[in-house]
Simulated assay, not measured.
Amino acid sequence: MSPLDRLTELCPPPAARRQPVDWARVESALGTPLPGDYKQLTATYDPGCFAGYLWVYDPRHTSVHVNLVGSASDRIRQQMESDQARGIYPAPVDAALLLPCGATDNGEHLFWATAPQGRPDAWTIVVNEARGPRWFHFPGSLTEFLVAVLGGETAVPQFPADLLKGGTGFEPSDPDQWYPPMPTVTPPLDSAAIRAWGRANGFTVPLRGRIPSAVWRAWEKATGDEALPDGGPGRPC
């Protein structure tokens, strides 16, 4: 039985209302390919919550707090990098490798540890503590993590001891909180040109990975070009 089959056994998905995801657009905004298991997960489940506690970030959700490419994700990554630089609650991997992929009702965040780069199906999961120094590392995919936690095989120290007491069901978000389908694929942006523009205009821009949101905003303002529509999924700022 595959991890996804086991997850659907633990948490049956609701009646199909699923909308397609423009993965080319999303991956262009993030600057990285995404794991295959995550794409299968979003093809199986609508945006929503597992066990009344665990939210998987979804590019179809209107809330920046649970959108995979929302501005909240940018702020979380910046905070983790700032904490690491100051020696506060250091992550078990380089903070620059952390890509938020979920959250809990208590304020913990789930991250992909995006190493090795370019091999997303080999990424693992790390979880921070909402208001403390603890981190938890799970050596598997996001779907495998959900199965291990919801199946009672893995106890994450930061999670409530009675997490499974109320059951392991899945509750979808209100459809009004989803973005409408995007039937067309937007060609990938020329990120190399944007990086070069940023460096030429005094910005510090990494050679690879996600382009800082400040650079996107400045580039859009200077060129009059919107990388992605205002408020739409995949907007990198």
Rank of each mutant, 00 (worst) to 15 (best):
V156S: 11
L142E: 06
G169A: 15
L164E: 08
E144D: 14
S173W: 01
P172S: 00
G169Y: 08
L150I: 05
A161M: 03
A155R: 15
L146F: 12
A161I: 00
L163N: 11
F136Q: 14
G166Y: 07
A155E: 08
T154M: 04
P157W: 05
G167F: 12
T143A: 13
V147H: 02
Q158M: 13
K165P: 00
T168G: 07
L142F: 13
W135P: 04
S173N: 04
D162G: 06
L163A: 11
S141M: 11
G167N: 11
P160C: 03
H137W: 09
W135G: 09
G152C: 04
A161Y: 07
V156Y: 06
V156P: 06
A148V: 07
P139Q: 14
T143R: 01
V156W: 00
T154F: 03
A148Y: 09
Q158E: 12
L164R: 01
F170N: 07
P139S: 12
L150S: 12
F138R: 00
P139W: 11
F170L: 08
P172C: 08
L163P: 08
F170K: 05
E171S: 14
T168L: 07
R134P: 02
P172F: 00
T168N: 09
L146T: 06
E171M: 08
A155S: 14
L150P: 04
P172R: 12
K165M: 07
F170R: 03
L142H: 03
V147D: 10
L142I: 04
A148P: 02
E153T: 10
F136L: 11
L146H: 05
K165E: 14
D174W: 01
E144S: 14
G169F: 10
G151N: 01
G152N: 10
L150T: 05
T143D: 01
G140Q: 13
A148Q: 03
E171D: 13
T143M: 05
V149R: 02
F138T: 10
A161P: 01
H137C: 13
P172Q: 04
